[in-house]
């Protein structure tokens, strides 16, 4: 099924959790990042059990330089 991650299209398996998407699809560690799905924050403890659905819009945020 199709989802978007930071406005880019990705194809993932059915029943893929947020944790699964981060490690398997994007190959990024969860350190220092925040996840929102459809403008709603998914907290770290929820990552393994929050299952993504087709059409979900995922936003991944991290720190950057700023004043």
């Amino acid at each position: 099924m199709e989802i978007t991650v930071n406005n880019q299209a990705y194809t993932i398996d059915e029943s893929c959790s947020v944790a699964g998407m981060l490690s398997a699809v994007l190959q990024i560690s969860g350190d220092g990042i925040a996840v929102a799905v459809n403008q709603s924050i998914v907290t770290r403890p929820e990552w393994p059990r929050h299952l993504l659905r087709a059409g979900d819009q995922v936003m991944l945020i991290r720190a950057t330089q700023g004043g």
Partner: peptide
Amino acid sequence: VTVALKRIDLKDTEDDILMHLQHSHIHL
């Protein structure tokens, strides 16, 4: 020390400012 937020660049996932701010006296 202030930092801003951004959407992760999925083509450059190594780009992580926090590893340069890991000093025990620095609060974010």
